[in-house]
Design a binder for these strands. Structure first.
Lengths: 217, 217
DNA sequence: TAGATTGTTAATCGATTAACAATC
DNA sequence: TAGATTGTTAATCGATTAACAATC
């Protein structure tokens, strides 16, 4: 019944999770919203508001139990899930993502890799063979993956997404800026990682540091 | 005089830039805020508000000239800058970032790579040799880089940032979640790319799709 | 001129912050 | 019990949307 939790709140959860994990490793057992607000650069009010979207995890006069809260937030984020995940596009970026990220125990399990480059077919990354994109249908009908990571080049993304949505994939971790999945498939979950956009934003910020207001003055 | 443009607006600019680039390549010469709003999934009102933070680029009764607006937004974002950029941490991820991204003509110029792994020192990526992190001071005093890309491992980030800030680096494209630069160095420009956070957010979204409201309901 | 569409002001909506009673 | 700190309601602030006069 409680109303839909806003995306702003959701996006802060991983950061809470990180800070609490750090505290936990540092042997801190309890923390107040005030202390945590100091460490994270937020207001104590916001922290309490955020957490109370999901339940009353604290105790008056005491604060929050670090370990309990850490696990609660993990559970809220779905770290206890086990979403079967495939990666499409095993170039520079796809390879780095596959090798660099922890999937196991963080809600995901990597089960398949796909690429069209004949030179790398059969090669293994993280113990998984790279398969031709042609085999997507066969593989997905058998394995029923939940999530796809997209590191596909310009022209491939749109078609791959359409095929995957038809095959029941309902979450996309999308590195390809060339096709707006959320716009075209309103029913699926999408997280875009648009590195180019981020780099441009940084460029603006640096410029703004040097010359606030720019030409406008 | 005009008040500070909000980060929400800034973050939409690269997306406008992408859509306008696409229209331009497609041979579209003019577009109204209404048409563009349809294509981008925004309101026409928001587009006009956003653009008018920087100036009146349109014409009543006509709309916007696609090419002119594209270039204006590029200039606002600083695509005409030429920030000297170094990359620290040339592992899986750093390598992919160096190889995958376009820096030239997008406001940046990659001038140096640094890593501590002795096995890869001297290797070249994108025509640049990988140097030991020890040489950071010497290099930065000579080259005076503006921006650093951080793909450093857990324990390295904090120290590297402190050294770089002292050396005059004032923009950070940060892939390392282990140290909050903005919190510790309020005067510099920071864009965080926290892939782990994004992956967790996706996990929540997928879970929420399957079971809206979760346990709370 | 008439029609279209901007630039801009006003209204609405949502998110953040402040305040405080409840309670451990 | 007294002190601390939460959970929650109310106030503020900022961002988005709507409306419309200006103007091409």
């Amino acid at each position: 019944m409680g109303k839909q939790v806003s995306i702003s709140v959701i996006r802060r959860l991983p950061r809470y999770y990180r800070f609490l994990g750090e505290l936990l490793r540092g042997g801190v057992h309890r923390i107040s919203s005030r202390e945590l607000s100091g460490k994270m650069g937020l207001t104590a009010s916001q922290i309490r508001q955020d957490l109370n979207c999901f339940g009353g995890f604290g105790q008056q006069g005491y604060g929050y139990n670090v370990e309990a809260l850490f696990h609660e937030i993990g559970r809220i984020l779905g770290m206890d899930q086990n979403y079967k995940t495939i990666l499409v596009g095993v170039g520079n970026l796809g390879r780095a993502v596959a090798n660099h990220m922890t999937f196991d125990g963080r809600g995901y399990r990597l089960v398949g890799l796909f690429d069209n480059n004949p030179d790398i077919l059969g090669e293994t990354v993280r113990g998984l063979p790279i398969r031709p994109v042609d085999e997507l249908e066969q593989f997905c009908i058998e394995e029923k993956p939940d999530v796809a990571i997209l590191c596909t080049p310009r022209e491939a993304t749109k078609e791959v997404v359409n095929r995957l949505v038809a095959l029941g994939v309902r979450g996309f971790w999308n590195y390809s800026p060339h096709y707006d999945i959320a716009l075209n498939h309103p029913g699926v979950a999408v997280e875009n990682v648009h590195l180019g956009d981020s780099l441009m934003t940084l460029c603006y910020k640096v410029k703004d540091l040097d010359d606030p207001e720019g030409d406008r003055g």
